[in-house]
Amino acid sequence: MDHLQTNLPYSRPNTPGLHPSQIGFVGIGAMGYFMARNLANRRVIPGFAHAPLLLWNRSAEKPQKLVKELGEERVRITQSIEEIVNSCEVIITNLANDEVVKSIYDQFLKILTQSPPVKNKIFVETSTVGLILSVLYILTGLSSISGNLITLGELDGLLSQIRHVHFVTAPVFGTPSVADKAQLVIIMSGDYRSKKELAYLLVPSMGRKVIDVGENVEKAPTFKLIGNSMILGAIEVFGEAYTLGEKAGIEADRVNELVKDIFPAPGLMAYSDRMANDNFDGSIGFAIDGGIKDATHIRRLTATYNSPMPAIDVAHQHLITARAIHTTQKLEGKQSVETLDWSGIIAGSRVAAGLDPFDSKKHQSIVQEDE
């Protein structure tokens, strides 16, 4: 059996559709940098020409760094979103939050309406977003939506009304370090043929596995939020356990060793290591703002489906507590890191227990003596 077949839920598509000649990537952030780099370095198939990956980002620093790392034969910075949309057959977006997603796809729609494509284009949204995007106004020559909200399904409807245009949601599981190693798990929903083509483009170049959850584009983001609820719930429990251990005189190294014995998942062990060592630098992890965004989306999802998740409610409160403390420290010039990682959630448990939020060296263990 084909090695990829075990990690992809599709049969191999017929060539030449397997290898689009031009791909664009929008959003070269903490995750997007590694995703774009690995995609640009994808395995070269004999007989297929690969044009440089086209990049667009609001700021130029990271795209320029990527060009310096790979060279212009692999990646090239575009001067406008119009060039990405008009030149590429596949456009991948990895963006910071719902508002940025709304803004970028608003621009996509306007460009597509002004210059309708004459061949297939696939737009691939890989960010973690809610099912309802905040939107001020979207207008195309075909349809308009005014008001404050637009669902992913409605966005899919607007895009699919334009001939040759397809939309796939493909959020990914993994931290920047996982993206660096091309070990992301990719969740896909949307047009079946588009997913089939994308799967063989993105695995193994960008990820290790694709999970298909159907043609409704809202399913993949829902699945991603369910997965994130498990991760967030776990690190909340870890934070509470470490805090209890600190109060009871159990060394953090001991708790961390136990985590590795009973929860041997690489991602969870990494967050445990951060808590054990007070390593809360979000510039090389998952920034707490992203954690609060995801927790907010999860809570909205639980309300939509009347499916309570009390652990996430507590985690959301502790994330906000941690961010508030860190913000105060920054105003006073006392912060230890510029960007706080979401493993800093432990601060919520620590301050509730009367401990320092981010520095366990300041704790005095309370140990019950035998009588």
Rank of each mutant, 00 (worst) to 15 (best):
K68D: 11
I226N: 02
W56M: 08
G282A: 15
D156E: 14
G32K: 03
S189E: 11
T327K: 08
A352C: 13
F286S: 06
E72N: 10
A60P: 10
D253N: 12
V44Q: 15
D370Q: 12
Y33A: 04
E371T: 07
N228I: 03
G267F: 00
Q161E: 05
I45C: 14
P9T: 05
G157W: 03
W56R: 04
K362Y: 03
N57A: 06
V168Y: 01
F108W: 14
R208I: 00
R43A: 14
T6W: 10
P13F: 13
P46N: 12
V90S: 04
A303S: 15
A40W: 10
I298Y: 08
T327I: 08
F280D: 12
F286H: 05
S343E: 11
L202T: 04
I81G: 00
I226G: 01
V85H: 06
T15V: 13
R350K: 07
T140W: 11
D341E: 09
G354Y: 06
E371V: 02
D253E: 11
L95K: 03
N120A: 10
A353P: 04
K224D: 08
I150S: 00
R43W: 11
M309S: 08
D253V: 03
Y105Q: 11
S103W: 05
S160H: 01
D98V: 02
T222A: 03
A182R: 03
I77M: 08
S103G: 04
V100A: 10
G285I: 14
E197T: 14
D370Y: 07
K65Y: 01
P221A: 05
L18S: 12
R254L: 15
K102W: 08
D356G: 05
L54W: 13
T93D: 01
M35I: 13
P264D: 10
L355T: 13
W56A: 07
S229C: 06
T15Q: 04
N228K: 03
P46S: 13
